[in-house]
Amino acid sequence: MLLQSPLGLVAAAWYPKQRQTVEEALAAGDIDARTARELGYTSLPVSEDTAPPDMAVEAASRVLELSGAQPADLSMLLHASVHHQGHDAWSAPHYVARRLGAHRAVPVGLLQQCNGGAVGIELAVSRLQGDPAAGPVLVTTADRFLMPSWHRWLSDYGMAAGDAATAVLVHRLAEEAGGPDLLLHALATRSAPELEVMHRGDDELNATPMGHSPMIDVRRTKRAFIRTYGVDFFLKTAADRIRAVVEECLAGAGLAADDRRLRYAVIPRLGSKAMAEAYLPPLTEVTGAEVLDLGRATGHVGAGDLNASLADLARTDLLEPGQYALVLNGGGGFTFTAVAVARP
């Protein structure tokens, strides 16, 4: 998408104190040594006591505090999630808005699978560019992956899931007293709905939640997908979309592929082997920027990988003033997004 001018981002993430190390997972028989090696994680955050919407409130409160933005000025609250938020037939985004005091914001839930947080930022940009009167937009993500409905190590191939929340405030420049952590210069998204079947397999659409299996089993649907289409169909389609979003994003930010200002290309928080096979080849084909992996101690954090990486870039000195990072993400459906941000 075309940004009329750079927008400001203030970002933070919230992680529970409890963690499960990979050694503990091996000892518990949650994974075998080979899978642990291929995933490459050191530990995963575990949120047994705090539900996702409360996790989102923690991250959002930190962002409001850092930015100085007033909750009542928010024009929209976009909340993205992958898994159960704590209740049925109920709006987690409205809960987050109520707890924050964002009474004038329009709360919207994004069930976009793992690229939901990234698409939230895209929608925030649309809101700000489409309505000159709109106040800042807050994008939150939150998920936790607990048994019996989700086995954080075994429910999917190529990744293990960590519990976390993220919050990204998207605002016009000079709107917030504190100034932005990052400048958003470009954002590009491409979808591949032909890959929707990866997360459905051969299953019929049924009438009851969790009706296909008592535990979410993405491995089963992916096996069905691979039996019909093969792994290469996914790899080729993903590579095509990833190249497209990276190229469009760099062009939108006015960056050449080998631009010295482009300090990092930040990758999603999937398993190391999955990223080496699916994400790194098309990414490194387009840009030689140093690849930065920020997910080894968090795992894949549901809808919030890209947003968590923005929080890391915002809250650390990884980027010096004037330096850029491209942050890449993808999610079931499939959708791929790349953003280009810079330290002011």
Binding site: R219, R223, G230
Partner: peptide, 23 residues
């Protein structure tokens, strides 16, 4: 890996008529 074993099971079923449970 696990994903290639799925492809192996498809090959074995198609070429030899033998069903392998990759899991």
């Amino acid at each position: 890996d696990s994903l290639l074993l799925i492809e192996l099971s498809v090959i074995v079923e198609k070429e030899f008529g033998v069903q392998l449970d990759e899991t």
